[in-house]
């Protein structure tokens, strides 16, 4: 070993004698590089492990799982757990699988995303271009509201929903998502509209356009990038919600996350780990797909939402 390194040293010394020229000779595996890539690869294992384990488990049969080695690849690939998770898994008395939760979630998701974005974009537009007395105060309260633990508002909302007859209804949950999505989305749209040159707004006003005219004809068409970010943010957030789903809906209208938890953590019967993992993956599929498709926009969305929130 020492011989080899001596030789290397000699070679480098020789090069120095013959005058440095061009780029500095660099060892491909410098200590710094080994440290950087080594750490990154090691950490990657931690981050990738659960996804890998979920996938391989969901493709194994129960006998193979009972033999142990959760990390081994399946010896015999079976898609039965996926079918079972989707169509047959039981929660309580219902045995029609996660599909029910999936469709519930879709029914919650679409109107929630639309309504919350419509309201928040109009709010943001009004806040950045049509400031009125008190508008900043309401906005500040809204932003502070984002930091209040949901727990302090849960019960009053139950009462309000009961009053308007939407408690336990999907419509009620849509309203709840709209309300709790409002702070971050309003902030997002407000900052975006504020970054659009004011001259544009003034020019439109001189041309006689009003509140809605400017909103629909000027601002909304320019807001496409931020609309995409908002959609990503909301779809992921609402799909992943558990707390509101479990409180404001009833078992027939449970969203997918709640149903998933009930399937996996039910105490009855034999635990079917492969079905559980297939169900878990199924639930995670929608946000994962959005994440991998949207790529940089997702990062931009959460960074914009997070940094300024």
């Amino acid at each position: 070993m020492s011989n080899v390194s001596d030789l290397n040293m000699g070679a480098i010394a020789g090069q120095i004698d013959s005058e440095p020229r061009g780029p500095r000779p660099r060892r491909r595996f410098s200590r710094a590089n080994i440290f950087i890539y080594g750490t990154l690869l090691l950490v990657s294992v931690y981050y990738l492990l659960p996804l890998y384990v979920m996938i391989v488990t969901s493709l194994k049969g129960m006998p193979e799982i009972r033999m142990g080695n959760v990390f081994g690849p399946p010896m015999e690939i079976t898609f039965e757990p996926w079918v079972k998770a989707w169509a047959e898994a039981c929660t309580g008395i219902n045995c029609d699988g996660l599909s029910r939760g999936f469709w519930n979630s879709v029914q919650i998701l679409v109107p929630s995303v639309l309504l919350s974005i419509v309201i928040a974009s109009v709010n943001g537009y009004a806040l950045s271009n049509w400031k009125f007395r008190g508008s900043e105060l309401f906005f500040t309260i809204l932003i502070i509201g984002a930091f209040i633990p949901y727990q302090t508002m849960l019960y009053p909302i139950v009462i309000m929903l009961r009053e308007i007859g939407l408690m336990g209804d999907l419509g009620g949950l849509v309203l709840v998502h709209t309300v709790f999505g409002m702070p971050i989305l309003t902030l997002l749209f407000r900052n975006y509209f504020a970054s659009i040159p004011e001259e544009l707004f003034k020019a439109a006003r001189v041309d006689g356009a009003g509140f809605w005219g400017i909103y629909f004809q000027i601002m909304l068409p320019m807001a496409l990038p931020i609309l995409v970010v908002a959609v990503i943010l909301q779809v992921t957030g609402i799909w992943n919600d558990f707390l509101f789903g479990v409180i404001y809906t009833k078992p027939e209208t449970y969203p997918m996350t709640v149903q998933l938890n009930n399937i996996v953590n039910s105490v009855q019967g034999v635990k079917e780990y492969n079905v559980n993992m297939a169900a878990t993956l199924l639930t995670g599929l929608v946000p994962l797909a959005i994440y991998f498709v949207s790529g940089k926009l997702f990062v931009r969305g959460i960074a914009a939402g997070a940094v300024k929130g």
Binding site: V43, S44, Y47, L48, L49, P50, L51, V53, M54, T57, I65, R66, G68, N69, V70, T236, W239, N240, D241, F242, T257, L260, N261, V264, N265, Y273, N276, M277, T280, T283, G284, P287, L288, I290, Y291, F292, F298, V299, I302
Partner: peptide, 25 residues
């Protein structure tokens, strides 16, 4: 790789790790 778990819900996260930390398997 480092960010994708953030796209997943806490429910999915909890269930996945419950399985990995399962004492028997």
């Amino acid at each position: 790789i480092f960010l994708y778990p953030f796209a997943l819900s806490f429910i999915v996260t909890g269930l996945a790790w419950q399985w990995i930390l399962n004492p028997d398997f």
